[in-house]
Amino acid sequence: MAKDVREIVKEDILEALGLEEGAVPTTEIEPEIKVSHGCITRALEELAEEAFIRREGEFISLTDKGREKAKELIRKHSTLQNYFAERRSMEEAREAAGLLEHYASREVIDSIRKLSTLQEGLPLPGINRSGGLITDIVCDRQLFERMISMGIYPGESLKIKNTLPNCIVVELGNKKFALAPEIARNIKVSRDEET
């Protein structure tokens, strides 16, 4: 599964551009990618040929096609980084993610995402911040369907609005619900802050 170094550099460039707004001078991109100047120049030429980027003198910017690609890469990166952040230091996690993202297929990323969110889930009443992603709902079938049909669904992001002695008031999308602690306990919410 070895990938051409230049391919990796190209992906890194797209990713770096994806994090910036509009056109960026090449000199700003170079320090972030730790390879030779020549290697970067060739990668940029190829990216322009493949219509991922536009070059205007010293400035480069993403085309629509490039922006799509960059978004996908960034998503991959953050999934991996989150996964490793659980197990290693932040710096190590960033490195591991930066390395793996170029090799991992979409399927692998998807399962890693699943795996990491499943492990991250905390019961809703136990989290002490304003909300997160629902990772899972663990309860009997009828209550499960009830919640699903109301729109309380794994993957939805949830905000805690108020906590009362008899219930937790949460907001999902445009809807608000009052949930008894017995109900809320079944809802597992991600450890990371999500918006």
């Binding site: 445009n174 608000k176 109900i183």
Partner: peptide, 9 residues
């Protein structure tokens, strides 16, 4: 039955 109630706008 425990409370599970939508709070409409």
């Amino acid at each position: 039955e425990p409370l599970i109630l939508e709070l409409p706008p």
